[in-house]
Each structure stands twice: as C-alpha cells, then as structure tokens.
Amino acid sequence: MNTIAVRELGRRDYSSVYDEMRAFTAARTPETRDELWRVEHPPVFTQGQAGKPEHLLNPGDIPVVQSNRGGQVTYHGPGQVVIYVLVDIARRGYGIRSLVTRLEDAMIATLASYGITAAARTDAPGVYVSGVFDDGLGPRPGSRKIGSLGLRISRGCSYHGLSLNVAMDLAPFSRINPCGLLDMRMTQVADLGGPADCSCVETDLIAALRTKL
C-alpha cells in the first residue's frame, strides 16, 4: 500500500487550494501517492454542496465560498488546524463511512493525548466535547463541537478533509449555524487545557491520521 505524504501549504486562500485539490484528484492514477495537505486559511465561510442558506446567519465581511464537499456551512481561520485528506480509499479497501470514522478517531486520539475527552456522534459527523460550560449565565452542562469534517469522493478517491480548532477567534462561528446544527457552540484545544501551538497539534494529528488511515 502506498504511504501517505504530507504537504505543507502554509497560509493559503481557500479557493486556490480547493481548485488544486480538484485538479490533483482528477489527475490521479492508480499509482498516485496518497497525500495529507496541511494548510491554514484566512477567515472564510465554506458552504457544502447541499448547504442551506438559512444556516448563514450574518456572514458580514467574511467571504462565503461554495464548495462541493458534503455537509453544511463551516468557518476556517487562523489558529485552526486544517488537513485535507487526498486518499484512494478504493485502493485501501474501505468506504466513505469508514473514512469518516477514521478521521474522527484520529482527532479523538489526538485530543485524548492532551487529557481532553471527546467523542463522535452518529447523527452529525465531527468531534464533540461534553462538560460544564459558562456562557455568561453560570456554569451549565452541555456539548460543544471542536472538530469538523467534510468530504468529497471522486472515482474512489477522497478530498477535502477535517478541521480542528486549536487557538482561534471563535466569534465568527456565531454568525452561522455550524455544520447546520442549531444552537451549537464551538470550543477549542487551548480553552480545554491543551496546547495553543497549531504546529504541535498538527504534528500529533498527522501522526494519528497515519495510524488510522
């Protein structure tokens, strides 16, 4: 089986990387090596292929880009680890549901290494943290989302991928219903006692992805 290469893209505009993912996938052959693309985006809302406009509450001056991934609207910005997963899942012998689970498990394992307990949900892809949170009305138990994912499969190959909130401005998430979830609040690694260094989290998450994929 081909090994997975890691490509470091730095901070890049979402639309240009989106175009490159599609081109890479369209040009793949059975011998093309699988890749993980690590990137940080300037502030942007991305809307999934079947995204509903009512989940865009107040985008303001942050651009909204339509994409062909699954899922609803999400936000990307500095302080968030974004990894695009360009993998030939047909060659690896598993399907889309298995890929989703593997990506969620990699995020969960990475968070666990920081002492953060997270879990997936059967009704909404991504990774969630349960606990007691204070939204200004006093501490209350609840659930918050920390990791998101959206994928596209073309000719048995995946692109798009996952995002994990590390140490970012979470305020833009209040301008949308994240991933179409009403009243869903977001959280991040640094606020839960984990590292605030995206490079550290990136390294750990890529190691987990290589194990799970």
Rank of each mutant, 00 (worst) to 15 (best):
I96L: 15
V189G: 11
I176F: 07
V189Q: 08
A118I: 11
L164C: 05
A124V: 03
E54D: 15
S143I: 15
V82W: 03
V65S: 02
A50W: 01
T117E: 15
V39P: 00
E31Y: 12
E104V: 04
A106F: 07
R7P: 00
R69Q: 08
L9D: 03
D34H: 10
V44K: 13
C157Q: 05
H76V: 08
G142N: 08
Y84N: 12
L213R: 04
T122G: 14
K212Y: 14
R185F: 02
L192H: 10
R28W: 02
T211P: 02
E35S: 09
S98F: 02
Y114M: 09
G161A: 11
L9C: 13
S148Y: 08
T203M: 12
T122P: 09
Q188K: 03
L56V: 04
V81F: 03
T122C: 03
G147E: 03
H41S: 10
A23D: 10
T101I: 13
E35G: 09
R11P: 12
L36R: 07
T187H: 06
T101V: 11
S16E: 14
D34L: 00
G95F: 13
S174N: 13
G180E: 13
V44Q: 08
S163T: 04
G147M: 01
G147P: 01
A5N: 15
I146C: 02
G138E: 07
T74A: 05
D134N: 13
G194H: 02
G150Y: 08
L170A: 14
G93E: 03
A207I: 08
I4G: 06
G156M: 13
S158P: 03
I83R: 01
G77Y: 03
F173W: 11
A208T: 01
P30W: 03
A5R: 15
T187I: 04
A26E: 14
L162G: 00
R7N: 15
L164R: 08
E202W: 05
D19L: 15
R97S: 13
G193T: 07
A23E: 14
Q66F: 05
G138L: 05
C157F: 02
C200Q: 11
M1T: 11
K52A: 15
D123T: 14
T74H: 08
D204P: 00
M107H: 09
A50T: 14
D61Q: 11
F133L: 13
M184T: 06
Y94L: 08
I153Y: 07
D13C: 12
L99F: 12
G71P: 04
E54W: 13
E8V: 10
Y94G: 01
